[in-house]
Design a protein around this nucleic acid. Structure first.
Length: 652
RNA sequence: GGGCCCGUAGCUCAGUUGGAUAGAGCGUCUGGCUUCGAACCAGCAGGUCGGGGGUUCGAGUCCCUCCGGGCCCGCCA
């Protein structure tokens, strides 16, 4: 509601300034530094000062007296050295909130595609992957909450080097047959097994350089899709994907479609993109020099300043001299498909039906009988990929631009974020050996090749264990499975909030102790506020009472009650979820949404402490306080569950 | 050598896109449970916003420069 009033205010001032001063500058509406100044502050007098050659303060006073009355605004005051502060009519505003019908938001045209997770299917997911998925999933929820149609894609690189390395491990190091591996897959935590095997294989290359030939042979077999090696690769990749989907489902993260690299190749996506790139001369064949025999994209396409003239050496190789295509090449084809620019489509088959009924599909190269939804053909594409790959993302966008797909290039957004590293303290705790140099660093980078990192499932297990101990001590009377469910919800809230509270370009130095904290600015703190609101209503029901009739809360009554600053500030904060969503979306920062939820919880916890609602004896005030609690609960529940993907437990 | 990111309280981080007296959490210290359960609340202490220039009514925010740290720049992905 808050942002609607803000919009109205902006329009009102724009119209007035346009007619009175012929000034058409955009109106800036801020929130005052101190709440005692009112609800909005307009620094408009400062920008008018130059035009009118008058002191800002005098202009602000003039505006305050001359501007026509605005419905719902109680006062307009000049303040400071030229601010114009706006005070809302509290009764009017609250009445709007009380009677607001759940406005069904008009669906914006066009489909947004969000690609996230994209974990190499060769080992267990780790904490860094969780940041990607939680950021992506939350952004998806935010877009949907704002009325956008969104498709969630999880790209599977099932033919790459990383899968090949694990296959090398199984085939050459462990001499395992497909039947042996199938037996392993049926055991729990196959992804953990591969985590170790991948590290072992990488290590083996280090001490046996000649083994790299195994990798080459394996990649070749995978690409041609034949023989035992190719079969192993498929088995491993498919099984690990299942593990990843299970891990993500624990956090409430689901997908619509999983495009795969194998299909990009088999269905000639790349061949078609290659033709277009050649035809439009986005890439060229190199006759000489270090890139001899390759098809490359000139550096000028993806770099601002090119120092050299030709710069073949700076060019990005798209097709190797042996004729195989690089990852970026395939990514260009994939990006084209996302926008419906390729004139080709995958076939699809159902991959899994989620508990909530949602169906995920996976790309295949042969048609199946079941009709799949129309995937791809997006009008906007967000790729959630860590910032270390920004160079490659630039190349992909440059590819679109070089093909004259300017609009699609502009709407290809690298939703980047910094990596998750480990705090030195946590490395020690996990038994990771550190050099003297590393111990002095603020953080240590994780490495899949070395097997260094915190596995996602381990972390989730630890969080559940910790939460369970807390729940057990507080609610010994509740049933075991119920306590486990609540503990799981708390663990999810804790983890999702932890990964969201940092802005995207902050490197997270993951610290186990910090992540396991449930106090202060954490998910459980916010959940606790929602649970407290819930408790009040449950207690009311236990006393045999029902909620009073809120229609007795007339604007006059509301105005009277909201004269109390504490109540007004809580109501105001709770009414800002739409504004918070708008600003979080325009900034592309899920962290803003998380912080809003935290601030709202803070406001409620203070309110809860100071005003025992059920003990209130004045009937009018009691009714009002109950409505306030109900309104707060609705807003926080919605923000947590719908937008942030954080469940609200029944009790804590 | 080129590109991107970071530097704000003891620690970890925000800072509404240039606005009023720079804010949270943790930690330290002090106080508050008669159950709408304290995973909470209240209070104290803590800052030359890395340094130096500049732009203007106004800079943590924009520009230049220097210092310190990180990440990329492969016929890996």
């Amino acid at each position: 509601m808050f942002h609607l009033i803000e919009q109205k205010l902006r329009q009102h001032f724009a119209a007035f300034l346009s007619s009175a001063y012929s000034n058409d500058a955009a109106i800036v509406v801020e929130q005052p530094k101190q709440s005692s100044f009112g609800e909005f502050a307009l620094p408009v007098a400062f920008s008018l000062a130059r035009q009118l050659r008058k002191a800002p303060r005098a202009i602000a006073e003039e505006l305050a007296s001359k501007i026509p009355a605005i419905e719902g605004v109680a006062a307009l005051e000049a303040a400071g050295n030229g601010y114009l502060n706006v005070r809302l009519d509290r009764g009017h505003y609250a009445s709007l909130l009380l009677h607001a019908a759940a406005s069904s938001q008009a669906q914006a045209p066009g489909k947004v595609i969000v690609e996230h997770t994209n974990i190499n299917p060769n080992k267990a997911a780790h904490i860094g992957h969780l940041r990607n998925s939680v950021l992506g999933d939350t952004f998806v929820r935010m877009l949907r909450a704002s009325g956008r149609q969104v498709e969630v894609q999880n790209y599977i690189d099932n033919t790459g080097v990383q899968v090949a390395d694990v296959v090398v491990g199984f085939h050459y190091l462990e001499k395992k047959s497909p039947a042996d591996v199938a037996a392993l897959i049926s055991q729990p935590r196959f992804d953990y097994y591969c985590w170790d095997l991948y590290a072992r294989t990488s290590q083996y290359y280090g001490s046996h350089p000649e083994a790299v030939q195994w990798r080459r042979d394996t990649l070749h077999s995978i690409e041609h899709g034949e023989g035992e090696i190719a079969e192993l690769a498929h088995m491993v990749a498919d099984a690990i994907v299942e593990c990843h989907l299970n891990t993500m489902l624990r956090l409430g993260i689901v997908y619509d479609v999983l495009p795969r690299e194998s299909e990009i190749l088999h269905l000639k996506f790349w061949a078609k993109a290659f033709d277009q790139l050649k035809e439009r001369q986005a890439i060229y064949f190199v006759e000489d020099g270090k890139n001899k025999g390759c098809w490359v994209m000139a550096a000028a396409h993806f770099r601002d300043a090119v120092t050299g003239d030709e710069g073949d050496d700076d060019a990005k190789v798209i097709v190797r001299s042996n004729g195989t295509v690089t990852y970026v090449g395939k990514d260009i084809a994939y990006q084209m498909w996302k926008f419906g620019l390729l004139g080709l489509d995958f076939h699809y088959k159902p991959l899994r039906a989620y508990p909530n009924g949602h169906q995920a599909w996976v790309a295949t190269d042969e048609a199946c009988d079941l009709p799949a939804p129309a995937f791809g053909r997006g009008s906007e594409v967000y790729n959630v990929i860590d910032s270390r790959q920004s160079y490659l993302q630039d190349v992909v966008v440059a590819g679109l631009r070089a093909l004259n797909y300017e609009q699609q290039a502009d709407r290809s957004i690298h939703f980047s974020y910094e990596m998750v590293a480990l705090s030195p303290r946590t490395c020690v705790e996990l038994g990771i050996p550190l050099s003297e140099e590393d111990k002095k660093r603020p953080y240590v980078e994780v490495s899949g090749r070395k097997g260094l990192g915190v596995k996602a499932d381990d972390l989730i297990d630890k969080l559940i264990e910790k939460a369970k101990a807390e729940v057990d001590s507080r609610h010994p009377g509740k049933a075991e499975d119920e306590r486990t469910r609540v503990a799981t919800q708390i663990a999810i809230g804790s983890l999702r909030y932890f990964l969201l509270k940092f802005t995207r370009n902050t490197v997270i130095a993951f610290d186990l102790q910090e992540a396991l904290s449930f106090e202060g600015e954490t998910g459980p703190y916010v959940q606790y506020a929602a649970v407290r609101a819930r408790n009040i209503l449950r207690k009311l029901a236990e006393r045999g009472e029902t909620l009073p009739d809120f229609s007795t809360l007339t604007p006059e009554v509301l105005r009277r009650q909201l004269a109390a600053e504490d109540f007004w500030q809580l109501l105001l904060a709770a009414s800002k979820s739409g504004a918070a969503l708008d600003s979080a979306l325009s900034a592309g920062e899920p962290s803003h949404m998380a912080r809003y939820a935290f601030q709202l919880a803070q406001a409620f916890n203070a309110f809860y402490h100071d005003y025992p609602i059920l003990a209130e004896e004045n009937p009018e005030k009691r009714t009002f306080l109950l409505w306030l609690a109900v309104y707060f609960k609705e807003q926080l529940d919605h923000t947590l569950e719908h937008t942030l993907g954080i469940p609200v437990p029944d009790y804590m």
